[in-house]
Amino acid sequence: MNKISIGRSGLISTEAVFGTWALGGEYWGPQDHSDSLKAIHAAIRSGVNHFDTAPVYGKGRAEMLIGQQLRKNRADFIIADKCFYREPEAFARSFETSLKRLNTGYIDIFYIHWPVSGADMRPVMELLEKYRKEERIRAVGVSNFSVPQMRHIMEAGTIDIAQFGYNLLWRKEEEELIPFCRENEITTAAYSILAQGILTGKFLQIPKREDFEWRRKLVLFDEDVFPEIRKEIHYLTEIAEKYDLSAAEASILWTKENELIDCSILGCRNRSQADENLKPFSRTLNSSLADELNNLSDRIRPLIPREDNIFRHKT
């Protein structure tokens, strides 16, 4: 599996990042502990060295699981954690709690998870730089930040990696954020590369209100645009089958081979998902397949509503 540098931090990460949101349960429904363990170890066997978690993933359950499973060979892995923006004292308390759950003395990458518009976030950045000097973290990240918000906190420190939603159907960050990252040697990490499951071909209708209410808020599930997306997903499945791929594998391969994206964050709930989602990282993208996927993406792109992020989360 290819490796990439995380900003100027010296950290070397695999292109594939194991995302643990689903392992916490709650948002994605109940999660079997045994399935979680098998997924983590399938990723390790595949060569993944970068694991991404957060205290809000199951009220700390995902953090504890990662801490337990990576403890034995801690130095071999990159653990990324995060905290929503809050005042420095509260932010520091959250950091200390995460250290305990992870059963580690340091966290490799620590993100400010979501920004708050209008807030002076520089004191939190100063805190993270203090942790860096104390070797309690090794790199600083931001998640879901705009370019002005990144410029703001860069007055107080260095951003090594930026995390944002990106996939065949959602490419907003190509306009400003990704070019800014390239200009400033900031590593790009894409999440939701399967569009919360839409690109697997499993969601061919808008979820019912009682099923994953949060998922219904996705921009891609807008009643005005989802019928068009559904047509393209049928086409995606047909394209993928021609190249002996699933729709999910083709979508992951497209993102993995995209020169704008350095790391792809993959959520895997069990061994089967881990094996399927990591398989594209041992393949290359056929030029004909790339053309067909690019055409699909270009057709749908003008129809996607203009929003700050894929979740419509207001900061």
Results as ranks from 00 to 15, higher is better:
L285C: 07
E174D: 13
K217I: 00
L296R: 08
G197S: 05
V219E: 01
A62S: 08
K279Y: 13
S143K: 09
D275R: 02
I161W: 08
G24S: 05
G267I: 04
A42R: 06
R101I: 08
G165D: 14
S282A: 07
H113E: 02
L220C: 10
R8G: 08
P30I: 13
S34Q: 08
E173S: 12
H234C: 07
L199D: 00
I109H: 06
L296D: 04
A190T: 12
A39H: 06
I265Y: 01
F180E: 01
N270L: 03
Y57A: 03
E241P: 00
I265Q: 02
G60C: 06
G201N: 10
N277A: 04
F311I: 11
N49D: 03
K242P: 00
Q273F: 02
L127P: 04
E257F: 09
S288V: 14
C83G: 13
T188G: 03
V116T: 11
K208Y: 07
S98T: 13
I66T: 09
S146D: 11
D275W: 00
P179K: 04
L168F: 07
K202C: 04
L266C: 04
R171A: 08
N258I: 11
R74C: 09
S46L: 05
T315N: 11
L102E: 01
R74L: 07
T237E: 10
L260T: 09
I153T: 06
A119W: 08
L177P: 01
T53F: 10
F226P: 01
R86A: 14
S251D: 00
N309W: 12
S297H: 11
N277W: 05
N144L: 06
E228Y: 15
K314A: 10
E259M: 14
I233C: 11
I79H: 01
D52E: 10
E129C: 09
R171W: 07
A80M: 05
E135M: 13
L65R: 13
H113I: 08
I239N: 02
D308P: 00
G58R: 04
L236W: 10
Q273R: 01
M150K: 13
R74I: 05
N277Q: 10
S146F: 13
R132T: 09
I265S: 01
L70V: 07
L236M: 12
K59D: 12
Q273K: 02
R269T: 13
A39N: 05
D76W: 00
R45Y: 00
A250C: 09
K314F: 09
I109G: 07
N258Y: 14
A290T: 02
Q68I: 10
M1G: 13
A162F: 04
E223K: 15
N103E: 12
E89R: 14
I40R: 02
L199F: 03
P55W: 10
Y111H: 15
V140D: 04
N270W: 02
